[in-house]
Design a protein around this nucleic acid. Sequence first.
DNA 1: CTGAAAGCGCTAACAG
DNA 2: CTGTTAGCGCTTTCAG
Lengths: 332, 332
Amino acid sequence: MSSSNKITIKEVAKRAGVSIATVSRYLNNPTSLKEENRRKVEKVTREVNYQPLLYARRLAGGKLNTFGVIIPGYEDIFYSFYALEIIRGVGMALDKEDLDLHLHIFNGKDTFKTSLVDGAIFADIIGNETQLQRLLKEEFPLVVINHKIENPNISCVSINNFKGSYEATEFLSHHGHKHIAHLAGDLRVQCAQDRLEGYKAALKKNKIEIKDEYVKVTNFSRKDARDKLEELFALKVRPTAILCCSDEIASEVLAFGEEKKINIPKDLSVIGFDDNPHCLYGNLMLTTIRQPIMKMASLGVEILRDSLKNKLPPKKIVLETELIVRDTVNFL
Amino acid sequence: MSSSNKITIKEVAKRAGVSIATVSRYLNNPTSLKEENRRKVEKVTREVNYQPLLYARRLAGGKLNTFGVIIPGYEDIFYSFYALEIIRGVGMALDKEDLDLHLHIFNGKDTFKTSLVDGAIFADIIGNETQLQRLLKEEFPLVVINHKIENPNISCVSINNFKGSYEATEFLSHHGHKHIAHLAGDLRVQCAQDRLEGYKAALKKNKIEIKDEYVKVTNFSRKDARDKLEELFALKVRPTAILCCSDEIASEVLAFGEEKKINIPKDLSVIGFDDNPHCLYGNLMLTTIRQPIMKMASLGVEILRDSLKNKLPPKKIVLETELIVRDTVNFL
DNA sequence: CTGAAAGCGCTAACAG
DNA sequence: CTGTTAGCGCTTTCAG
């Protein structure tokens, strides 16, 4: 055994001259002890740096105080900025609640071990519906983030991608643009779908024809975006504005512009999605749709925590985006 | 309790008509059972989808089969590409070994709970020396990655940043460059230090004077790099080549070049570090120093796993980088 | 307010 | 090869 010389509750009890039950009470509800005993136990626990064995605790009926986070393994779709932001967001929120984080990278197999955690947070659910259904059937406490779920039994917190995209498209329209293209993300992901829908709705509302050739679906990768850009600019009527599914994609458009001598924003307006600081560089500050990833993460943690505390009805939260106007959109 | 209707080993034993010990054996060493019993137990476990309670297992003397991963919370230093690469790398390696991942984001507090895991993987140790020392004192199994540790008792796997940087600098020198600048990373991080040392050593070796004004220390952020670039190009004798501490920083140099009409690679050669696919875009393919992050991660997992299996002497592994020659370096 | 004792689900001798 | 039994460290009745 590795740390065999671990201090146990028994040892603490002995040294403090009380029973293990008293030490246990000290751990869980200190005020229930007599002042004197509390001091004695406190002294010993500090002296020996006593740390209760968490799984022994759980086994005895307590909580594990650990949440599981399930993130998709897809590299492009769940690109690094976004994925780490989620992980960091959830991690920080958990830290604040003094909860631990069990990370599960989903790779197509239904192997999430519920027995290790009190509840699960699904970061998106792309390709992971089966596992979600399993936990649901087991009535395992969970919350889904970044994906709005119809099922009324599931708590979820998501982003209003539709509206964010809608507003940005309308913003372009109000700047006089009629030829607005959209570099969409992988449509298996709900956010990509919703952004596409928002884009279309805004065009419709503003009496702009929706042209299929202006809608290019990417897998969220730069490489793919580049190919689609070539297609877009091989068209007879080239777009004067592009709404992108991510800031990374938007950055690729900026690079494309440099290369092809397309002046941005004079000849081409560009809007991104995310407000990814890593994409904020160079001479052009990207106009973009900011989404509150951190907020989404912390709300996910809160909902799960609350639903664990008392049986609550599922909650559905939709967070709004914010259009951050910078340099890459011009009046036509 | 959430999933109160959990099937236990007792229930399985009853249904299979064997003792719980037999079920336990089935779980841990199936071949030790009589064919007939094995089938019976297998049938039942499948039927009821039995999942042993992992912490009960551990409590009874088994392993938790969980590794802890401690990553720094610093946003700039531990930037998203790098951090997620580590997380994904360790995650995939653990998955292969059927081990679980407990993620701890280090935020300055010594709060890592050893009782939840069999061993710990430190992803770098910036600012986290105290916690490392504590686990060490407790003789807790651990391995450090991305940081070479002198202490002979600690296993570590790191990158040969010195040599990578050295080779790249020499590569620039061999291309006729004499005015080679270095945009270094935060020097509290060992890799940044080593890269700086490698750079200096290569200059020395090639009889190029080391000028302090050519060495600019950044915090790994684009913003900081931009400021330092301004300083660099305000110098009387401007550099003809820049070695960067990351691809992101190198991307900023590329953007800076575009903006200031500095032709890359004609007027300025640039080398990055990482081989970050997210930085590979635009008309210029970045020449860079590739580091085997995934390999480092999986080796970390292997070492820890092996040292847990049998008490082994600490291992020190240093992985080599590879110079990836693309478009951003020219002969002078 | 406290201690004794039962038991959480599992593993690991030990005896057969 | 299998069953019995004694814990692992902790929480939680239940008496006192």
